[in-house]
Simulated assay, not measured.
Amino acid sequence: MKLGLKLLQERAKVGSFWWPYISNLPETYSIPIFFPGEDIRNLQYAPLLHQVNKRCRFLLDFDHEVRHALENLKPDDHPFGGQNVDASSLGWAMSAVSSRAFRLHGKKLLDGTHNNVPMMLPLIDMCNHSFNPNSQIVQEQDAGNLKILVKVVAETAIKQNDPLVLNYGCLNNDLFLLDYGFVIPSNPYDCIELKYDGALLDAASVAAGISSPNFSAPAPWQKEILSQLNLEGEAPILKVSLGGPELVEGRLLAALRALLASDMETVHKHDLNTLKSLSAEAPLGIANEVAAFRTIIALCVIALGHFPTKIMDDESLLKQGVSGSTELAIQFRMQKKSLIIDVMRNLTRRVKSLSSKGATAQG
């Protein structure tokens, strides 16, 4: 938030060197903290709603801190030229920084790495995002020289009138919407978050027709594996994901493979990396793999059921014409639903392939 406060300070300063740049920044941003309450609810995705609420609470708390710090200051000592700084202006500054700042190398640390420093780069920040960029940012600095040269360098031949595009990062749609105010259709890095929970897995196994008491009451050796996966113990990390490059987060896949196995010795023949790998086809046998995939498919069905609307409903709403924030919220939730369906289709194909192999082996 330091850069945001500096931005507000320069905006308030008479004759600021940066005023031509600041005056051309957007007056409003299309990120969820500025959505009407109804459109925040329209996102229909609990992890993102949590992040939006968290950022809003931060702004309100920071607003109180700033007001307290500025109380009774003399006009000459006021860092913002006497202008009022509230949650709205702080939100504007935070949005300007999150959507336009780049992280560059700062001071060199003792271990040889550099700390990251957020910087706003006029003109360069006009480049849009692409996962297939035609340009990249290059940072140069001579030894002993504090001045930094930052430039955009073409990575491919660029035709006249083609835009310069940069890769903002391999981010999911949650971060693109939270920080930049847009959603990437068919984002290969998008995912959905689930909480690893024995009761949820029990419900999924029932829906999949797979009975396994080990989800809620794992055997001691299975608990040990869950602890190694950080899904059990004193400070477990229970957030797991579906989608993205992994398709199924390795920790979740390894846990299901182990919990659906009955033979401890067979499981212990494989290391955790093998159990976590989707490319390691059926390390514990075809029946185990099919059961794991069917359980994940059932988890997807449950996750899909948490959305109050279907994709067809969303498409119908978009055709009717809606506000910009409503459109973004609908697009976001549509992408999440499409992602879940894609995961289900992928795993269903794998189940069919494994089942046919199993039938061939038996024949």
Rank of each mutant, 00 (worst) to 15 (best):
K2P: 08
K2Y: 14
L7Q: 06
A12L: 09
K13D: 12
V14P: 13
F17D: 14
W19K: 12
P20I: 14
S23H: 14
N24Y: 13
E27L: 07
T28H: 15
F34L: 01
F35L: 09
N53I: 10
C56H: 07
L59Q: 02
D63W: 05
V66R: 02
R67G: 10
P75V: 00
D77V: 13
V85P: 02
S89M: 03
L90E: 03
M94P: 05
S98L: 07
G106T: 09
N116R: 15
P122C: 07
P133L: 05
E140M: 05
A143Y: 14
A143H: 15
G144V: 00
L146T: 15
I148G: 08
K159F: 10
Q160Y: 06
L177Y: 00
L178S: 05
V183Q: 01
N187V: 04
C191T: 11
I192E: 08
L194V: 09
K195C: 09
Y196M: 08
Y196P: 07
S205N: 11
A208W: 05
S212P: 09
S216E: 07
Q222R: 09
Q222I: 05
I225Q: 07
L226H: 03
P236C: 02
L238Y: 02
S241M: 12
A258L: 10
D263C: 08
T266R: 15
L275Y: 01
L275G: 03
S279H: 11
A282D: 02
L284P: 10
T295G: 04
H306D: 14
I311C: 03
S316E: 14
L318I: 04
V322A: 06
K336Y: 08
K336T: 01
M344G: 06
R345N: 15
R349K: 15
R350M: 06
R350D: 07
S353Y: 15
S356W: 13
S356H: 11
G358F: 06
A359E: 15
G363C: 12
